[in-house]
Design a protein around this nucleic acid. Sequence first.
DNA 1: GTCTATAACGAGATAGAC
DNA 2: GTCTATCTCGTTATAGAC
Lengths: 211, 211
Amino acid sequence: MADTRQRLIDGAIETIRAHGLTGTTARSIAATAGVNQALVFYHFGTVHDLLQAACLAATRARVQPFADQLGKITDLRQLLALGRTLHTAERAEGNVMVLAQLLAGAQTDPKLAEATAASLQLWITPIEDALTRLLAGSPVAELIDTAGLARAVSAGFIGLELYEGVDPEGAQAALDALDRLAVLIEVVDDLGPVAVRALRAKLRKTAKNRI
Amino acid sequence: MADTRQRLIDGAIETIRAHGLTGTTARSIAATAGVNQALVFYHFGTVHDLLQAACLAATRARVQPFADQLGKITDLRQLLALGRTLHTAERAEGNVMVLAQLLAGAQTDPKLAEATAASLQLWITPIEDALTRLLAGSPVAELIDTAGLARAVSAGFIGLELYEGVDPEGAQAALDALDRLAVLIEVVDDLGPVAVRALRAKLRKTAKNRI
DNA sequence: GTCTATAACGAGATAGAC
DNA sequence: GTCTATCTCGTTATAGAC
C-alpha cells in the first residue's frame, strides 16, 4: 500500500511524542506504526530522513487550523489567549513537543536543522501576518518589528512547552505573567500620541547608546 | 584520583554540547574526559545518573557570574542587554544549550525532569530577585507578576537558544524585537499615575472577561 | 580506583525470498 | 512492496585482574 509511508510518518511522530528523540529508533517507529522494521529503510533510506519528513508533517498538520483561528483575532490579548488554547491543546496532542524534540536534535544535525527551521517558519509566518494586521492601525506599529516579534513568540513558545514538561505549575505562572504584560502594550496603544512621542524619544536615545 | 568524577562531569557536558543528547554515550563521554569507559559506571552507576549530575553542574558554573552581574542592573533594558550578552557568551561556551538538550530529554524521563527543573530554578531565582528589585519603586510593580515573568523569561531564553541553533539570523531579529518591546514597559513606567490608572482599569476588565 | 575483557543486547542497515 | 534473516557495529553494564 502507498499509505505505509504515511503510517511510518505518523508512527515516527507518535514515537517521538511518547519516548522522546533518544527513544526513537527504526524498530520503535515500526512497532508503533504496525509495520515491518525494514520498511523504514525501503521508504526513507535512513531513520534521519524519516525524521525530517515527520518534522514537516507534524507541523503542517497543526499549523493550518491555528492559522485559521489567527485570522479571526482582533487584538493582541486575543493572540495570547489563542496561544494559551494552543498550549493546552498541545499538551494533549503534543505536536509542538515533537517539534521541540527535533529542534534539540537539530542542534547537532545540519540536515535536521533545515527541516526544523522550515517547520518553525510555518508557525512564524501566520503569526507575523496576524501581528502586522493587528498593529496596522495602531500608533505603535512603526515602533514594533513584527517579523522579529513573531520569531520571538514562536521560539519562546517552544521554550515554554519544554518548561511545562518539567514544571507545569511554573509554566502556568509564566503564561499568566505574560497575559498581564500584554496589557501594557494595549495601554500604550490607547494612550495615543503622547505615549508614541515618549516611545520615539526613548528609542532614539536607545539607538544612540547602542552605537 | 578523586577528580575523575569531575572529569566525567565535564566530559559529559562537553559531549552534550558537541554531539547533542543522542550522541552522548558512556563511551563518548569517557573519550572526551580522557578516562576509561568503565569508570562512568563505577562513579555514577548509570549514564542517566551522570547526566543528572552534569545538568546541575553545568548550570551552577554559569549562574553564579550571571547572578553577580544581575545585581548591578538598574533598569529593565539593562536586563535585556545582559540577556543578549549572556546569549552571545553562551553561543561560544554553550552551557545553556546543554540545559536545553537535557530539558528535551527530561520530557520523557522523570528523574532527569527533576534535575532540569532544579537547574532552571537556579536561573529563575536571581532573575526574579532582579525583577522584584527593579520594579520595587515603580508604579507598575503591583501589576506585574515577577515570579511568573522570571519563569517566562527563562523558558523563553531556552527556546531562543534552540532557535538560534537552526536560524541564527531569525534569532537575532527576535532579540532585536524584544529590545524594542522592553521600551514599552519603561514608557508606561515613565508616564506615571495616568498610565497606571489605565492599566488597573484594563486589568479589572480583563479579570471579568476571564471569569 | 583503574584497567581489560566480555557479556548481553539493541541499533542501523542490507540481502534475498516472496 | 513486504517479509525474514542476518550482518556489523555500538550500546550499557559487569566481572575480575591489578
